[in-house]
């Protein structure tokens, strides 16, 4: 059961990573990077690392995304890769 769950999470994480790098819109890219961090934090729970999971959930998917969004708000237009 656990390996299946882990596989699904890894697939979601990799798809989020591809979306973050390849999608045209920067906003969607930033949100996908947050999704990658969120799935990574669930993977840490499965790998028996609750401390790391809490840090990743609070910092990787929360604060990091907010900082990207604050910078994106300053940069209008010009959002194509």
């Amino acid at each position: 059961m656990l390996p299946v769950l882990l596989t699904i999470l890894v697939i979601i994480m990799l798809l989020g990573g591809l979306l973050a790098v390849e999608h045209k819109s920067l906003l969607i890219g930033v949100i996908s990077a947050g999704l990658v961090s969120l799935t990574a934090s669930i993977i840490y729970v499965i790998l028996a690392a609750p401390d790391v999971a809490m840090t990743e959930a609070a910092i990787g998917s929360g604060l990091s995304t907010v900082m990207f969004l604050y910078v994106l708000r300053r940069i209008k237009g010009d959002s194509n890769a």
Partner: peptide
């Protein structure tokens, strides 16, 4: 080519290394 995109790539690299 977009710098923000490069920084996103850097943070993905970071997360992968931690995993």
């Amino acid at each position: 080519k977009n710098i923000i995109r490069i920084i996103i790539g850097f943070s993905l690299f970071d997360t992968g290394l931690h995993v």
